[in-house]
Design a protein around this nucleic acid. Sequence first.
DNA 1: CTATTTGCAAGCAGGTAATG
DNA 2: CATTACCTGCTTGCAAATAG
Length: 337
Amino acid sequence: MSKKNANFAADLVAGIDPGAQAPAARRPGIGASVLAGRESRLAELATGSVVSRTHELVDPARCRMWAGHNREYALLNEERCADLIESIKAQGKQEMPAIVRRVKDDPAFDFEVICGARRHWTISWLRAHNYPDFRFLVDIRSLTDEEAFRLADLENRARDDLTDLERARDYLRALDAYYEGRQKVMAERINVTESWLSRYLDLARLPAELMAAFALPQDLRIKHVTAIKPLLKPEDRRQRVFAEAGRLAQVQSDRAAPMPVPDIIRALALAADPPKRSGSPKKSGKPETIVSEGGKPLLKVEAVDRKGLKLTLLPHAGGTRAEAEAALKALLDQHWS
DNA sequence: CTATTTGCAAGCAGGTAATG
DNA sequence: CATTACCTGCTTGCAAATAG
């Protein structure tokens, strides 16, 4: 994952859609500068301005996290910040400034951190561990909430810090908070395709009754939504799936072992379409070899699922072509309906 | 009509089997 | 053992389908 995300980050910074595959669409020349000043460049692109910069060294205790900050500050620890701790110790200072804005509504704080929770945590930690003189290097901006959101999002996407679900929920919140519920506008603003955004929002919109089935919701990814969402379509299936979700929640709370996401989805899909067909004795994924009347293998059915079936033709096993054609035709009749 | 969702195939990465 | 060929699953944007 890490390698792919590195490319992803580069694309982002270069101002290209995250999934842009077309090499022709790449803007030449920008890539190199990415390595130079990644974060400040991120900032410029996000706000569209390179205006006045105010870098200052401040007391981290006078900074709070921005309310819209989607990173779980409480989850930060020495291990997750180890790289930063080392780097700052080695450099003797904080290399990249965090991005903050002034706060006026709370006498306990002067700033709130838009980007740089880890840096804030690290400086605070160092001050408490033999480096009381370190101060928090910040870049003070005046940003609207929406600008702050885009900036934070850009950074989070580049660093791949959040789970799909966290990001999805963040987007759903932002959609109403900053974009009046307009996906198209939001997609344009944060530089992603509408379909990409649509899929993320789908994840955040999965009903709570359904989410209950997942002991570890953070393992739920975008790719799973495609499989889950159709299960909620007709009302009766929806109800069956909810019921099964409740059962699964129960099962997993009883015994302490959480089920893997794919297993849960399989169970839900099964509940959605209960006994299924009657005359199809296909047990499970066992390959089934179809033989001729004379006992010669003709073709082997490797797998059958709702997407289709996979088979291997066996032209060298002794059966005749006519027999194979007949067997194939029978299969087609059976599965094509 | 516009906005959103969804089916689909291309491109990619990582894994596994085949080859030397 | 090291390379190479092959396979599989994943992500993504496009465009068609559908919702509103």
